[in-house]
Structure formats: C-alpha cells, structure tokens
Amino acid sequence: MLSVKEVSVVFGTKVALDRVSLQLGQAEILALLGPSGSGKSTLLRAIAGLEEITTGTISFEGRDLAGLPTHVRGFGLMFQTYALFPHLTVAGNVAFGLRMANLAPAAITSRVDEVLQWVGLSELADRRIERLSGGEMQRVALARTLAPNPRLVMLDEPVGALDRRLRERLVEEMADSLREAKLGVIYVTHDHDEARVVADRVALMNEGRIIQTGTYQAIVEQPADAWVADFVGSS
C-alpha cells in the first residue's frame, strides 16, 4: 500500500533521514520505534508531505507522491502535541477534515456524532478545547484524525504527553479501535511496551536509519546488531 524507497531528508548539514526504506501492507499496524531524535517524526512528516524529501521516492498504491501537496494526500496525522484548533469546539475540531472534503452538513453532523460516540466524548461536543483534560484532548485529536476516513493513519507518540496510568489504559483501547477500523497505521513511539501491544510489525530507528524490521518477538530474539540488542534489552 505505502512504499518508502531510499528516502533521505537533509536539513542544512544535518541528515535527519538516511536512505530509509519501508513497506506498509493493507490494514497493517506498524510501530516506528526508536529513541528521541532518531528521525521517526521526520519520516511521518515526509510521508504527509510536510517535509520535502531530498532523495528517494514515496508512493502510495503504486502512485508516486512527489509534488503532491499535503492537503490532497488524504492521510491522517495525529501530532504529539495534538495541535487542536483553539478557536473551535470539540465537534468543530472533529468536523474540520470533513468540511475540507466538502461533505454535506448533514453528513458531517452524523459522522461527527458517530466518531465522538466511538471515543466516548459525545457529552463534550460543544466544549472549548482549553477546558479539556489531557486525556480528553488526546481522544479529540484521535477522533479528528480518524473522522475523514484517511487512507493511511500516522500517529506521532499519540499517548506520549499523558501520565503513565492513563497511557496504559488508552494504548489498549486504541489498539483495539485501530484493529477494528482495519486501517493502515504507522504508530510512532519510543516505548517498547506500546510497540509490542499495538503493532503487527516493528521498525527500529536510530540516527535517521531503519536498523531492523520484524515482529517485536523476532527482534527481541534475533537482534540485528549490538545497538538493537542493547535498546530492546534495556526495557
């Protein structure tokens, strides 16, 4: 479905992504696991079209995405900081992508209701963003990302800003929801447990490169090199 081939992103003299290649299958959940600064977010941004790639190709369903601006790619990206729109309500945030797709108002309303019910926020539909708790914001961000039925979902540390207990509960919930939705998902995290619980397959990243890909189990059992052994062993 998604194919990333030999992609590099260079900022000035800093190589953020170094010839990264990656495949994502239909309805597959892939965790991008690595320490902070390893290039995970940059890869998501490159796929979303927010970052210009220096070399390589990114294609989706056989079509090269080069030159295709972000807003027509139809991918969902959930930001680590959520990036909720402060001037809109909960429902307004969730409806945003649907409005951009020029859906009829009635269709927008029913889809917003549906998604809010799904994340358990129906009661808060008209609430302003600044009056939400951290966990509620997280769910609004997820609902907003999934509402327009994106062709590919990218989640950048989706529970990274929450405290531990909340995190564990939400990760389980989210893993179930994502499987149920049968979407292609790239899930960025620096947390091994999250990667293990959520993903079908894990891609390990370090210093702008993908070091090893496989199921979490396979990586733990057969680490590709000393760094991987150390990284997965430390959990």
Partner: peptide, 17 residues
C-alpha cells in the same frame, strides 16, 4: 503554532483555506 497550520493541511485544507 506551526503545527496548527500543518494539522489543517493534513486534514485537507489548501493554503488559502
């Protein structure tokens, strides 16, 4: 924040939108 504009773009908003 730049992310706000990026989030809007990802959700399908053109630059003028």
């Amino acid at each position: 924040k730049p992310e706000l504009r990026e989030a809007a773009r990802v959700l399908g908003a053109s630059p003028s939108q």
